[in-house]
């Protein structure tokens, strides 16, 4: 009896020892994980940090043999300088015009098409939809060659039209919204029909409010697309009056030799990046949701 008792006590001790060891291992592992993640986070953030502090340095300070990690004097005039050097006011205006118009038109087209595919019955619906999805596999460069010739022949080069019209229809957005529309129970639609509600009114009053999160995701991704597009605008509208922000930024600082005025360049880069950060800060949820389903940048 007594022996059994000590056995039990030993057993208990063992368990405590093992548990303690496990806890120490756990703490060590957690510490390592936090150290690793912090190091990675610093690496990820470093370019942003470097952009901001460089944009506030004087050119002399930037060129010091041993770089400083905090500006000695703050030169906010770099920002004013960048605004005029890169013509940022014009670029902002152009980008906003193109971004807003193309987003609105694109939303209208996407909503109408998604509604047709989700709610209406017509011959060849499934074939048409499958065909549309198949075009998503083709790399955009393949379209660009012909589209470049088409817009040249239409005389659209160097206009806002050329920046807006060719990209109004996105098969991916139609697909995304259709999936969302399909989740709205069909009974709602039939009930509205019985009540004599017109399709457009139903779309406006029921479908759109119910799929607002998806529409917001589309809006953000589309606006970001206009902000970040580079290849097509440079190809078809590279004149100062219609140049978009990314293209204009790269154009304003083409000199890659060592003599560039880096603080001003970094200030311009920061000005272009800030709106994106603001959007991200306030609408992170929608961006992440949209992105995780698309796999497409911008």
């Amino acid at each position: 009896m007594a022996k059994k008792n000590t056995d039990l006590i030993m057993h208990d001790k063992d368990i405590r020892a093992v548990k303690g060891k496990a806890r120490i291992g756990e703490i060590a592992a957690k510490t390592l994980i936090y150290i690793f993640l912090t190091v990675m986070a610093v690496i990820v953030l470093f370019p942003f940090y470097w952009m901001i502090i460089s944009s506030l340095k004087s050119l002399e300070e930037y060129r010091l043999t041993v770089p400083t990690f905090w500006p000695k004097t703050f030169h906010f005039d770099n920002y004013a300088n960048a605004f005029s050097t890169a013509n940022l006011a014009t670029l902002f205006k152009n980008t906003v015009i193109v971004g807003v118009i193309s987003t609105i038109l694109s939303l209208v087209i996407t909503v109408l098409s998604a509604f047709a595919f989700a709610r209406l019955e017509f011959k060849g619906k499934n074939v048409l939809f499958a065909g549309l999805l198949a075009t998503m596999m083709i790399p955009g460069e393949l379209f660009t060659i012909t589209n470049y010739a088409t817009v040249s022949q239409l005389g659209w080069k160097s206009t806002y039209t050329v920046l807006i019209v060719p990209f109004l229809v996105s098969v991916f957005y139609i697909y995304l919204l259709r999936q969302n529309f399909l989740q709205v129970p069909n009974e709602l639609y039939l009930a509205a029909k019985v009540d004599g509600t017109k399709d457009l009114k139903y779309l406006w009053k029921v479908m759109i409010p119910l799929s607002l999160p998806t529409l917001i995701s589309i809006t953000i991704l589309k606006m970001m697309g206009a902000w970040n597009s580079y290849i097509w605008p440079r190809l078809v509208a590279n004149d100062l009056a219609h140049r978009l922000i990314t293209n204009g930024l790269r154009n304003a600082f083409q000199d890659t030799s060592g003599n560039t005025d880096y603080p001003v360049q970094m200030a311009a880069v920061a000005i272009v990046s800030f709106p994106l950060f603001l959007v991200f800060l306030f609408l992170r949820k929608y961006i992440m949701k949209g992105v995780s389903r698309s796999g497409i940048k911008g």
Binding site: L45, N228, R250, V272, F277, F280
Partner: peptide
Amino acid sequence: FLPYVTNSIAIGMV
């Protein structure tokens, strides 16, 4: 996630 919401040309310049 932050690097995703950047302009690849702009940050390339950084």
